[in-house]
């Protein structure tokens, strides 16, 4: 009987931290599910230009990315300092773009193949000549929908 009478005391019980792991786990799972691991690491400098009349690029499964820019420091010895195209994980020539688009398109499911967008992530210091070559290649494989990916901001900052 003394077992029950003993516990009585006036002091405040400590706040239970037993549910802390649950809360943390909840957050953890949230971040785990929204995390998208980058599938290709950037080998080129990629400072995008600014623009303000932009549209959001919804539905990431319908987008094919092409990166253009000068190679980063560690690759400059091998590939020089002229802007280069990066497809997936390697540097490429403008003539490879068509094949790459076709290969990527074949990977997508049938109903998406006609609604694909090509996102051009181009460094703002790149020359238009290279972009024109890419555009020409895209036209050849009938990938006509392009998106010049930009940051949101004042477009006149590009020319300073």
């Amino acid at each position: 009987m003394s077992k029950f009478s003993k516990k009585k005391s006036g002091e405040l019980p400590p706040v239970s931290t037993a549910s802390l792991p649950d809360i943390v786990f909840m957050l953890l799972f949230f971040f785990m599910t929204v995390t998208v691991m980058k599938d290709s690491s950037l080998k080129v400098q990629n400072v995008l230009p600014n623009a303000n009349e932009i549209k959001k690029l919804e539905k990431k499964d319908r987008v094919i990315y092409i990166y253009v820019g000068t190679p980063t420091q560690e690759y400059q010895k091998v590939f020089g300092t002229e802007p280069k195209i990066q497809l997936n994980d390697k540097f490429a020539n403008p003539t490879d773009v068509g094949d790459y688009i076709l290969a990527e398109r074949a990977k997508k499911s049938q109903e998406l193949q006609n609604v694909l967008t090509t996102a051009l992530k181009v460094d703002k210091d790149a020359n238009m000549g290279l972009i024109s070559d890419i555009k020409q290649e895209l036209r050849k494989v009938n990938a006509l929908k392009v998106n010049y990916t930009t940051y949101e901001g004042d477009a006149f900052r590009n020319i300073q």
């Binding site: 929204v34 623009a51 009349e53 932009i54 549209k55 959001k56 690029l57 919804e58 987008v63 967008t117 996102a119 555009k135 895209l138 036209r139 050849k140 009938n142 006509l144 929908k145 392009v146 998106n147 010049y148 990916t149 930009t150 949101e152």
Partner: peptide
């Protein structure tokens, strides 16, 4: 958590 945005354009058919 980023959504890309940019200028949408259509290229002319070849």
């Amino acid at each position: 958590i980023e959504t890309d945005a940019g200028l949408d354009r259509m290229l002319p058919p070849i």
